[in-house]
């Protein structure tokens, strides 16, 4: 205390000696702060500019395309042959290919991810949970090119072994979908588990007190209460699957093919964008413009799903706060 008061008197005596100096220093501090504040504001603007940039680029570069091909033809046409004559620009085969893989990935990730989430939140003892959860999350950190390799060199031969190599083409939607499901599984399980853990303990206790089994508590109490969170996790994971590039490029093929048969080769929207980028397509040609048109469609689809997912999550949070 005595030391403090002594130093206080020292400062105040300073103040008394040099009031100008203190005022000047204070001014300098506020000047410095206003400059820093502006610099920080500039950095924050960059993320806004990124969004504007994405929208402007996608729209501007595809305007030329849509002046030659109507939007209606683009989203409803059943043939996609931009690289050879006669050129047809119906994106349905690409959309269909993307959705086929995404639906398979969705089925895999929902089954595995929801099962894993229920196990982690309702059944697993803390020790088991602490080990399994991080192991599962490694799946989300593995580069997608590695998943592509895994699909092509492991899952596809396995499928050929099970179903028959005459029926499974080397590049097929099923293999890519399964591997992608594995990749997005931790996303489904983590977000679903968060939603389940947020369900108040009292609801579970009430059900247990009535003699319910753990399965009944999980399926009749916890899942209905956490449903919006689970649905949101699923939508966000699907959006991730739709935007995923390398797995479909490596394992699903490059044949725009409007089919529901997962054993056939398809081409996803992202894989098309990459295929054109790898080739020698002249800047400004209609082939060059197609990748921006496809990109715009992809952007709109994923953005809609992300917004939907987040709206559902925020609704769900309001219920419990």
């Amino acid at each position: 205390m005595s030391i403090n008061s002594r130093s206080n008197t020292a400062t105040s005596s300073n103040t008394r000696l040099l009031p100008d100096e203190v005022v000047r220093r204070r001014r300098r501090q506020y000047f410095e702060q206003s400059i820093v504040s502006w610099l920080l504001r500039v950095t924050a603007v960059i993320s806004v500019l990124t969004t504007i940039g994405i929208v402007v680029i996608l729209v501007v570069e595809s305007v030329g395309f849509f002046s030659q091909v109507s939007v209606w033809e683009f989203v409803t046409g059943r043939e996609w042959t931009p690289l050879f004559k006669p050129q047809k620009f119906g994106a349905l085969p690409l959309i269909g290919g993307t959705l086929l893989v995404a639906v398979i990935a969705g089925l895999v990730s929902l089954t595995l991810g929801l099962g894993a989430a229920i196990f982690l939140s309702e059944y697993a003892p803390e020790g088991v949970r602490k080990v399994l959860k991080p192991v599962l999350e490694i799946l989300a950190g593995i580069p997608t090119v590695v998943y592509g390799y895994f699909a092509l060199t492991f899952i596809t031969p396995m499928l050929q072994g099970i179903i028959g190599s005459d029926r499974v083409i080397i590049f097929n939607a099923l293999s890519a979908g399964i591997v992608m499901g594995l990749m997005i599984m931790p996303m489904v399980s983590t977000l679903s588990e968060d939603a389940m853990i947020a369900v108040p303990r009292s609801l579970r206790d009430a059900a247990y007190a009535l003699g319910a089994t753990r399965f009944e508590v999980s399926t009749k109490v916890v899942i209905p209460a956490a449903l919006s969170g689970i649905v949101a996790s699923f939508i966000l994971a699907l959006s991730r699957a739709i935007g995923e590039t390398m797995i479909v490029k490596i394992a699903a093929g490059a044949t725009p093919n409007l089919t529901l048969n997962p054993l056939e080769s398809i081409q996803a929207m992202t894989a098309y964008i990459v295929q054109i980028s790898l080739g020698e397509t002249a800047h400004g040609s209609i082939e060059y413009q197609t990748i921006f048109a496809v990109g715009l469609l992809l952007f709109v689809m994923t953005l809609a799903m992300n917004i939907l997912g987040r709206v559902i999550i925020s609704r769900f949070r309001q219920v419990y706060e």
């Binding site: 994405i54 935007g243 994923t302």
Partner: peptide
Amino acid sequence: LAGVPSVI
């Protein structure tokens, strides 16, 4: 932005 596909 965190949800925009990397290819975009």
